[in-house]
């Protein structure tokens, strides 16, 4: 287990300016139940959208409707058979998500006093518009791998934003005073958390490029152990040193559980699609289920890593001494 050593990870002097600042940040806005429920609904709907998108790719149905934004030249519901049912459902859910996102952005702007949360609402709106544009380009440009992969990556980014809004409009986040412990370890937990997000993004892009036939499977498979090591390191560091902080502990446990699930699903997806399904004449149910589950759990994993990073940022700040650049630490001669 990781040892705190001569840890400075103790509850610091409550009078310190840093603690006051963090505490105030945590209590800056009143809890709004309706707003929170709507944010949770938006995040859940976004998760459904990711599953719908994964179904489109797994069933090779991305171009079953050759036009966009219309479907076969109109906005009416087309006959839902074959690949059309996957593609059109994805478009319908995406349309609903745009409406939900406009609502949550406006509501957050009006109801939430936290400045960063207001901007997050606007960022959600910008991301969902970018995502819609990428979805359109995917159809109109006949699925170039880089556009389709960008569509996959931006989709999961939007999901992360939706989850962050949902978590940080919750009662627990808004009414609980953050428990704060200073981090004196190298690399710091926030560095590890950010590194986890980075390796997950790289893995997401490699996976998307493979799914959209822009790359072989092996870069994605080769990066999987890197992701496993970084995420395990982050979660174990969080659990061994900061398990008293509930928000950090819960996120770290969830991260570990999702990582194990995701590795199993990745192996299953590899077996069904690459090893056994290479010569399949059509997408078969086992390969569709395993790959869709792999994408869905991947999205949850990324969102959890983002939440962990935010919780670490709130609860486990890097101690001041560590953040002072080396050259500024030199004594100043009079």
């Amino acid at each position: 287990m990781w040892r705190a050593g001569v840890s400075l990870a103790f509850p610091v002097d409550p009078d310190s300016h840093r603690i006051k600042e963090l505490t105030l940040k945590g209590l800056a806005a009143p809890y709004n139940r309706a707003h929170h429920c709507f944010a949770v609904f938006t995040a859940c709907a976004t998760f459904c959208l990711i599953i719908a998108g994964a179904l489109v790719t797994s069933n090779d149905a991305g171009l079953s409707i050759p036009d966009w934004p219309t479907s076969f030249g109109s906005f009416r519901i087309p006959p839902l058979h074959g690949g059309i049912r996957f593609e059109w459902s994805h478009r319908a859910i995406a349309g609903s998500i745009i409406v939900l996102t406009i609502s949550i952005a406006v509501w957050t702007w009006l109801a939430d006093r936290r400045r960063w949360m207001r901007w997050l609402g606007l960022a959600a709106l910008g991301t969902v518009v970018a995502q819609a544009v990428l979805g359109g380009l995917t159809v109109l440009l006949l699925q170039p791998p880089w556009v389709s992969s960008a569509h996959a990556a931006v989709g999961q980014t939007f999901f992360c934003i939706a989850v962050v809004i949902a978590v940080f409009t919750g009662r627990r986040s808004m009414e609980t005073v953050p428990q704060i412990e200073m981090d004196t370890h190298r690399p710091s937990l926030i560095t590890l958390s950010l590194l986890s997000i980075l390796v997950l993004y790289v893995q997401l892009i490699l996976g998307a490029m493979f799914r959209h036939r822009g790359m072989s499977w092996w870069p994605h498979a080769l990066n999987a152990p890197v992701v496993a090591i970084v995420l395990t390191w982050t979660a174990i560091r969080a659990l061994s040193l900061y398990s008293k902080i509930e928000a950090v502990r819960r996120s770290a446990i969830l991260l570990l559980a999702l990582l194990i699930t995701q590795l199993c699903l990745g192996f299953l997806a590899f077996m069904t699609r690459v090893a056994w399904g290479r010569d399949a004449v059509q997408p078969e149910l086992p390969m569709v289920i395993s790959t869709v589950a792999h994408v869905a759990v991947g999205a949850l994993l990324l969102a959890t890593a983002v939440i962990l990073a935010i919780q670490v940022w709130r609860h486990v700040p890097v101690s001041f001494e560590e953040r002072v650049p080396g050259r500024e630490r030199r004594p100043v001669t009079a």
Binding site: D60, A61, S64, G82, G83, I84, E87
Partner: peptide, 9 residues
């Protein structure tokens, strides 16, 4: 191929 009927090649 036909994206509506993925076996059609």
């Amino acid at each position: 191929k036909c994206n509506q009927h993925p076996w059609m090649k």
